[in-house]
Amino acid sequence: MTRLVRRQGWVAGLLVLFVVLLVITRLIQPGYGSGDFGSLVRAVLPYAFAVAAQTIVVIAGGIDLSVGAMMALTSVTAASMMDGASEEYALFVVPFVLAMGLVLGAVNGMLIVVTRVPDIVVTLATLFVLQGAALLVLGAPGGAVAEWLRATIVGTVSIPGLPELSAWIPKALVLLVVCLCIIWIPLKRSKLGLSIYAIGSSELAAFRSGVPVARTRIIAYALSGLFAAMGGLALTMSTGIGAPIPGPYLLASVAAVVLGGVALGGGKGGLLGPIVAVFVLRLVRTDLTLLAIDPNVTAIIEGAIMVAVVMFGAFITMRSRQS
């Protein structure tokens, strides 16, 4: 019970931090309004999916270094398939790319299970492979995206009678919440979700209690691949093109996972914390930009914050292991 309170307390604290940062943003830039919030959410979208992908694997006791490369590959695949194609063709592209993420994620998991090489090495190798594949699909940034896909993340929802409120609910946020909930809530309530937490908490104990460890691990990586594919699609949707070079999503995802209260050892935490954490991290970046700090300096500060967060997380994990 106390653990539950502590965990929810952590998420609540993050939410408070987010609101405080929003207020600070308002103070720095009095004109910061719903439109700016919309663009914040659009910027967060790929990060949020990367974080979701990382979270599920970390809960299962692993780590996925190939998240960024997977997003790059799915993004260029989507962009190059939609390039010059009709609007309806995108209806086929989206499920195809999602399935591709699912399969590639499952391949990650299978390689870990079959070769018994540690996850960090396997996903490092697949990071190289996926990066190379992305370069093969599209040598330079390019491609295109269907207009209706772009429209799904631009603008706000319209709730009749509540124009004030609906202005603050960007479509991108709705898309994010729907995509995450559709997978996460049924998972969390199912036996499979419990198994994922179980193998992360103690693989041996899970095995002895009859949890199919290998299968659960493969499914966890497959879901991670699915989330990464969503991230890749979100990337293409928000930029309109595909870029074969992975962005800084790997470090950002690990930092947000740690900041979101998911133990790097596995078995603890939820999805909400990391998602709020990624909003916090992005908002810090927005604030730095609004303060007219050189974007390169912003990148340094952001990197330093992420490294500090990861160091803090590792320190906590070490302390809890010792006690």
């Binding site: 070769t115 090495v121 490092l124 190798a125 990066q131 190379g132 594949a133 370069l135 093969l136 040598g139």
Partner: peptide, 15 residues
Amino acid sequence: MPEGARRILFGLIVL
């Protein structure tokens, strides 16, 4: 062999 294929090869070698 393009750069992409080279990276794939390096990844497979490591694995």
